[in-house]
Design a protein around this nucleic acid. Structure first.
Length: 480
RNA sequence: GGCGCGUUCGUCUAGCGGCUAGGACGUGGCCCUCUCAAGGCCAAAACACGGGUUCGAUUCCCGUACGCGCUACCA
C-alpha cells in the first residue's frame, strides 16, 4: 500500500489554448489533491517542438488561474522537483535511455521515417496490422556500432516482451489485461534527441514522485507501455485513473467545428469561472446526492475518484448556460457591473450615474444567461425614441382604449412628485379609476409606449429608470 | 482490420439482486403577475439486445449489436 503523500500532476502540451476537456482533467487532479491533502504539479510537455505554439504556456497559466485551479508546483512557482518544462529535462531522458539500453530493455532503431511509412503502407495493403517489424531489434552489437560510427540517425525503442501479458489496475475501470504481442516496440527517444511522451511521462512522474496519474481515457491503451517502462526501470508505478471523454452532441470526442472547445472562448463570452467549473465538474462525476450547485471549495470536499463514471459525457451547452444564469443571478451588483460593463457603455447607458446603473442591473439580472444578454434588455432604457418591436406590441397600442389611457397618464406623469416607481404606479391607478380600463388593457399600452415591448419587468420601476423626460416624450410620440 | 474501453429518460446522472427506476437541464402545462424573466407545482420522457446465474435481475456472468478511443520519431 502506498502511504506517501498524494501528488498529482496536470501535464498539458503547449499547443495553443486550454481545451475544456483539459480543464476538467486539471480540475479533477486539483480536486483530488485537495480532497486528499496532497499537492498538484503542473508540467509542460513540450517535447514536440514542431507543435509548440508561442505564448501557449502563458495562456495556460492565466486560464487555470482564472478557473481557480491553483497548482502547488510548476513553471511559474517552481518547486523541489523542477524544472517543470520537459524541454529543459532532456539530459535526464537521454540518461535513462542509456540505462534501458544497458539493461537490454531497449534498442537502437536505424529505420528512417520513409522506410517505416513504406512498411506500414505495405502491411495495410496486405490487410495486416500495421506494426513495426522489429528489424533493428535483431541487429548485432558490431552492426549497431558500425552504424553509429557512420553517424546514422537513430531512435531508441522499447523492447517489448514477445509473449505473455501484463495487467494493471485502473481506479475507474478496474483490472485491465493486455497481451504483450499487441504492444508495439514504442519509440522512446526520437532521432532529434527529444523523448516521446511515453518516456518523458514515466521518467518525470517517477522523479516528481507522482502517486496518482489522472488523465483522459485516450491514454488508456498506451498505459500498458508505461507499465512496461516502470518495470524496466524497476520503479513502482503510480495509481492510474483514466477519465471518461468529453463528447460532442454526436458522441465523438469533443472537438472544434462542433462548437467552442477553448476555455478562453467561454471566458470571452462572459461565462463565469464558477459556472464553467461547476458544470465541467459534473461531467463524469457526481456527489452521490442531489446537489448541483457547488463552489470549487465544496467540490474539493465532496470529490472522490470512486464516484467518477466510466462512460463519456456530452458537453451540453444548454446546461452550461443554466449554470451561468444561476451564478449570474446571485452575483453582487458590483460584480455584475464589472461583467456587464462593456455592454452598458455600448448601449449608451450613463454608467457614471451609479445609483441608476445599479438599479438597472438588479432589475435585469434575472433576464441574463450571459452578460451579453444585457444589451438587448437595456435598449428601452437608453435615450431616444422607441418603436413597437413586433406585432404583439403594435396591437397593444392599437387597442381602442390605448389612446385614452395614454392621454390620461401623460399630464399626471408630467407633475408627479417625486419621480419614483411608487408614485408612478399611483398615477397609473388614478388612470384606472378615471378610465375604467384595467389589467392588461391598462398596462400594455403604457408598457409598449414606454419601452416598445410587450414584455418586461415591473412597469413602475421601468418607468422610473427610463426617466421622466424620456417617458413623457415617448407618451407624446405614442398618442401623436 | 486489431486491441482497449463503454452502453439507465434527447442530455448530465442516481441506482451497487426485490424501487411506482430518483434528481437536474431542456420540453409542455398550471400557479404567481399588467406582461415577460425569475420562482413554485405538475407532466411526458430511460434500464441496447439475447442467453445464462438466481425464488427474483437495471444491478452478477457470457455473447451480440452499437458507440467511442488507440493503433506516429503527436501528445
Amino acid at each position: 500500500m502506498n502511504t506517501a503523500p498524494v501528488r498529482v500532476r496536470f501535464a498539458p502540451s503547449p499547443t495553443g489554448y486550454l481545451h475544456v476537456g483539459g480543464l476538467r482533467t486539471a480540475l479533477y487532479n486539483f480536486l483530488f489533491a485537495r480532497a486528499q491533502g496532497g499537492s498538484m504539479v503542473l508540467r509542460i510537455e513540450d517535447t514536440d517542438r514542431g507543435r509548440y505554439v508561442e505564448g501557449a504556456v502563458e495562456n495556460l497559466l492565466t486560464t487555470l488561474a482564472w478557473a481557480g485551479i491553483d497548482v502547488d508546483e510548476g513553471p511559474a512557482q517552481g518547486g523541489p522537483h523542477g524544472p517543470y518544462v520537459q524541454s529543459e529535462r532532456t539530459a535526464l531522458y537521454r540518461e535513462h535511455c542509456e540505462l534501458l539500453l544497458g539493461k537490454d530493455k531497449a534498442y537502437r532503431c536505424f529505420c528512417t521515417p520513409e522506410q517505416l511509412d513504406a512498411a506500414r503502407a505495405r502491411q495495410m495493403a496486405e490487410g495486416r496490422d500495421a506494426a513495426y517489424d522489429r528489424s533493428c531489434r535483431a541487429l548485432g552489437k558490431e552492426e549497431v556500432e558500425a552504424r553509429l560510427r557512420d553517424g546514422l540517425p537513430y531512435t531508441v525503442r522499447l523492447k517489448v516482451p514477445l509473449s505473455g501479458s501484463l495487467r494493471f489496475d485502473d481506479v475507474i475501470r478496474g483490472d485491465i489485461t493486455v497481451m504483450h504481442e499487441v504492444i508495439d516496440d514504442q519509440v522512446l527517444l526520437k532521432s532529434d534527441g527529444f523523448p516521446t511522451y511515453h518516456l518523458a511521462n514515466v521518467v518525470d512522474d517517477h522523479f516528481m514522485a507522482i502517486t496518482h496519474v489522472i488523465r483522459g481515457e485516450e491514454w488508456l491503451p498506451s498505459t500498458a507501455k508505461h507499465v512496461l517502462l516502470y518495470e524496466a526501470f524497476g520503479w513502482q508505478p503510480p495509481v492510474f485513473a483514466h477519465l471518461p471523454l468529453l463528447l460532442n452532441a454526436d458522441r465523438s470526442k469533443l472537438s472544434k467545428r462542433q462548437g467552442d472547445v477553448a476555455v478562453e472562448d467561454y471566458r470571452a463570452k462572459g461565462f463565469l469561472p464558477e459556472a464553467l467549473v461547476n458544470f465541467v465538474a459534473l461531467l463524469g462525476w457526481n456527489p452521490g446526492d442531489d446537489r448541483e450547485l457547488f463552489t470549487i471549495d465544496e467540490l474539493c470536499d465532496a470529490f472522490s475518484l470512486e464516484r467518477v463514471s466510466k462512460a463519456g459525457a456530452v458537453f451540453d451547452l444548454e446546461k452550461l448556460r443554466w449554470f451561468n444564469a444561476q451564478y449570474l443571478r446571485t452575483q453582487p451588483t458590483e460584480r455584475l457591473l464589472e461583467l456587464c460593463g462593456p455592454w452598458l457603455r455600448e448601449a449608451g447607458i450613463d454608467v457614471s450615474d451609479s445609483a441608476r446603473t445599479h438599479a438597472l442591473l438588479e432589475l435585469l439580472a434575472s433576464y441574463l444567461t450571459v452578460p451579453a444578454d444585457i444589451a438587448a434588455q437595456l435598449e428601452p432604457f437608453a435615450a431616444g425614441a422607441v418603436v413597437p418591436e413586433d406585432d404583439e406590441a403594435k396591437e397593444a397600442l392599437q387597442a381602442e382604449s390605448a389612446v385614452v389611457v395614454l392621454r390620461a397618464l401623460l399630464p399626471r406623469l408630467m407633475h408627479v412628485e417625486p419621480w419614483s416607481a411608487e408614485h408612478i404606479k399611483n398615477m397609473i391607478n388614478e388612470v384606472k379609476t378615471e378610465s375604467g380600463v384595467k389589467g392588461k388593457a391598462l398596462f400594455m399600452p403604457i408598457r409598449v409606449a414606454l419601452t416598445g415591448r410587450a414584455h418586461g419587468p415591473e412597469l413602475g420601476i421601468v418607468a422610473e429608470l427610463i426617466g421622466r423626460e424620456q417617458c413623457l416624450q415617448r407618451l407624446r410620440d405614442a398618442v401623436a
